[in-house]
Design a protein around this nucleic acid. Structure first.
Lengths: 200, 200, 200, 200
DNA sequence: GATGAATGAGTTTTCATTCAT
DNA sequence: GATGAATGAAAACTCATTCAT
């Protein structure tokens, strides 16, 4: 889950470093209270330092958010590629991607994807476009699978639309689905697959 | 679109009153800049009064947001019931509801539904549960239609799941679909209908 | 208790008039929440009018307080004179005055004397000196009795001191003595009398 | 007068620290103008910082008042115990306590006790009950001496009553007695002692 | 790297008072 | 006499950020 390779490439912060603990604490607080209502003092208190010391590690509060988001996407991208790598059938890949995205949304690795949409607007314009690029790569990955699926007759709606619909449906699960409830993640994947795939 | 009946019932503020203008301006600003980055001074300036005067009408900034959201739901609920009223076929009703919700999301009437999810976390706990009640009523309405649809064989997934998926898909359209682009709203409705309805 | 004569002399407001109800409500609120934390809106709400309307009756908030205090002193002065009028023995008079002041402090007539000391500092300088004059008259009255008592050997401390001590002791009862508790007012009077009068 | 022991126990703020200077300035201003009419800007200006900086040390204005009051009581309690420590006769102790309380009331050490009663109502409910506990300890101390005095025949009124009366009389001295006038504090102590002790 | 004190501009909020209707 | 909307000045409080130590 940690993918040390990303750390060595500088894309992920070493989780045990001061900076890493700062990021983890911030992510948790941003998720819980929202970016704008989390103060740097909150974060510092969580880590056990004083607020001024934060600025040895980050230029400003926004850059903490930006780093969190960037790392989240790098992580998901890497995981997605790893997961797909040894799958052949298109249907397996579809299901794998659904599962992968759901895991990201529900925070099975790292901070949880919901932060990205929830606090998106608090990023500076530069940070937003920096992340948009990565997101483009991420979305292309998904769309490609649906394009293949369409050509094979697994779905009957344009990849462009179906990917948007599916993304919305998945993100929304953050608001009602609970990981440790009755339905295992596998089951949720199946429900979505059932809903979108061709039926007869 | 105005539904004067709601005004006379006290559920909607008279749009031409001082309070009404305050609400409209606030909603527009919240949508544009977000709740936390809209100052009461911004709002006051937009309406042409001084910031202190706002508190003649609302106890605090949060209660403006709360009022906006409450009115938005009252409005959508009313519109939904009106729309369904003279439809018979279940398929027509499903499409009508899809269209109705999309109109709400894209702000065709009143403030626009996206505000509700985007700024939800800035409501006080009390306001949140007040709105959750109304939302319950709203969701039940939708679920009922899907229950009917399931029994008629129009869909093959449990109403509970399909409603959640559809809601997510619809809300997400706020991030990519543009009202005045190539695809008319009717077409968007059809794409979602196609995606979720039974295919063969 | 009402002393209509004071009303006819313009020293007391007719309690059933709008102004009178305003005064009563204000006094109650000032006592409960303090002058500075009682808003004119609070007062207006209590009376059932809007805050703006208060200023038809009083020039400003401070003048409400001033009027309340003035009336309180007029009332006590009048009651004191009435009470003393048909008493002969000095000891009876001492006890009568103690009782009279305690009744005033515990609000047996009108607003209650504690307001005077508690909110004194919120009066304008002019109001303060206006009231100080009346207070001088009031204190002289008390001191005269103690002067007589000293010459008769009922007390063994200078009237100047004893009056100050007694006033302090009486005012403080507001913080611990309860009218409807075990000790009747008469008993409290006796305890103070016992404490200050000559013992052997 | 400083009682460094209290500082080391964390009950008193180091008077030379930023927080200590803030407290001293606040106490002086609260005494002079009252709590509600002292602004945080007043306080900040007195100390030579900007108003916002106050909130680095105190959560809000009320907590400044609370701290002042708490420290005042800790101080008086400590002084009282120190004073009594090497006295044997009950009459000496009574006089010593009278003197001790008068010194506190007239601000001979620290802020002055009058602040406690004058601004009491501006404390939050929690702060009030926090202080009430300490006050209970303080009053018990006094009452114990009077209990002893009663059993020795020095006074002829129940300790419960006499303590209340004496406290009232002492507090009221703040309104008429001046430290540097004709009567030395010792003389004032004697007058009260004379008034309350058994006479023959 | 961390501290702790302070900044300073900005925020929401308060509220007595005014005044046209 | 009352209304209700607005004023406007001042209040408390917020908080990311800076910086000397």
């Amino acid at each position: 889950m940690l993918i040390p390779q990303l750390v060595s490439e500088g894309l992920l912060t070493e989780p045990n470093s001061a900076k890493g603990r700062l990021l983890a604490a911030s992510a948790a607080l941003f998720k819980q209270k929202g970016f704008s209502r989390t103060t740097v003092r909150d974060i510092a208190a969580e880590v056990g330092i004083l607020s001024g010391s934060i600025f040895h590690h980050f230029a400003n509060k926004e850059s903490i958010l930006r780093t969190i988001m960037l790392e989240a996407i790098y992580l998901v991208l890497a995981r997605m590629k790893l997961t797909i790598a040894d799958l052949d059938s298109c249907e397996d890949k579809m299901r794998a991607l659904l599962r992968c995205e759901l895991e990201a949304i529900h925070g099975l690795n790292g901070i949880g994807f919901t932060l990205l949409s929830a606090e998106w607007r608090f990023l500076s314009d530069e940070s937003q476009s920096e992340i948009l690029k990565l997101r483009g790569e991420y979305e292309a990955f998904h769309r490609n699978i649906y394009t293949e699926a369409k050509s094979l007759g697994h779905i009957n709606v344009e990849p462009f639309f179906i990917r948007h619909f599916v993304r919305g449906a998945l993100i929304e699960t953050a608001n009602w689905y609970h990981l440790h409830g009755d339905l295992p993640l596998e089951g949720l994947v199946e429900q979505i697959y059932l809903t979108t795939a061709v039926k007869w």
